[in-house]
Nucleic acid binder design. Sequence first.
DNA 1: AGAGGGATCTTCT
DNA 2: GAAGATCCCTCTC
Length: 272
Amino acid sequence: MPRKRKLLAQLSALQSKSSFPAFDALENLNVTPDRDSPKSSKYFAVEKKKSSQLESDFFNQPCISLAKSLLGQILVRKLPDGRELWGRIVETEAYLGGEDEASHSKGGKQTQRNTAMFMKPGTLYVYQIYGIYFCVNVSSQGEGAAVLLRSLEPLEGLDMMRELRSASRKGPTKPLKDWQLCNGPAKLCQAFGIDKDFDQRDLAQDAAIWMVPGPELLGEQDVVATARIGIGNRGEWAQKPLRFYLRGNKFVSVVDKKTEREMAALGSSSCS
DNA sequence: AGAGGGATCTTCT
DNA sequence: GAAGATCCCTCTC
């Protein structure tokens, strides 16, 4: 039991070190600060290194469209020690903003907590839930709209993810299976070391978290659209198909067989 | 395999 | 003062 405390302490100690090695080195290059010319700025090396990362224009699309587009893309988390965690997004939920009764921004109300939902597309909205967990969203186009990341397929850094996930669980536990590492919104935050400190960060600008395009091109038939999870009875909004996941992917948190059967039936009838 | 409850605390009414 | 975009453990069938 001291082990989990120790791990958490180590992580928070690492997190609290404000500087990153790469940035320290670059700070010392004594380059002229010129925000309009990336090639001469200290950010050039970073940009070059991440040349394939998703930029602001990718996130600047309507909420539902972004929720689908994020499927298959890869979330990268660079830990303070330089290690990188990679995970492919396999499940998302769209929260549309003012009209959406299930959204934190329902009624168009902006509060201290949900401010990031109203910020520019690509901004992270991280909130704490049930006092103990965190969930992460990506702000989209549209007032107060954002996409919740629900599940990732872990690609790289699985050992570290396992440590981070186990550290906050009580008692002696068996090692988690790969599919248990990131199959839920709070689990993926745990596995990737994402907490409130990441709220309002920009995915297109941050040194510790960003996205790169996934290798595969996905079609409509690869995506299942169904009801969102955990939002109770909020009338029609609870039923709307605003959750999206990759069909047949074993890293998805909740599979909806019924909807998949209906989709299959529709697909075969229209194909014949 | 499915149901139920506890943990735990910030946010907003 | 109550609820909450969750997770995990335990109990029962």
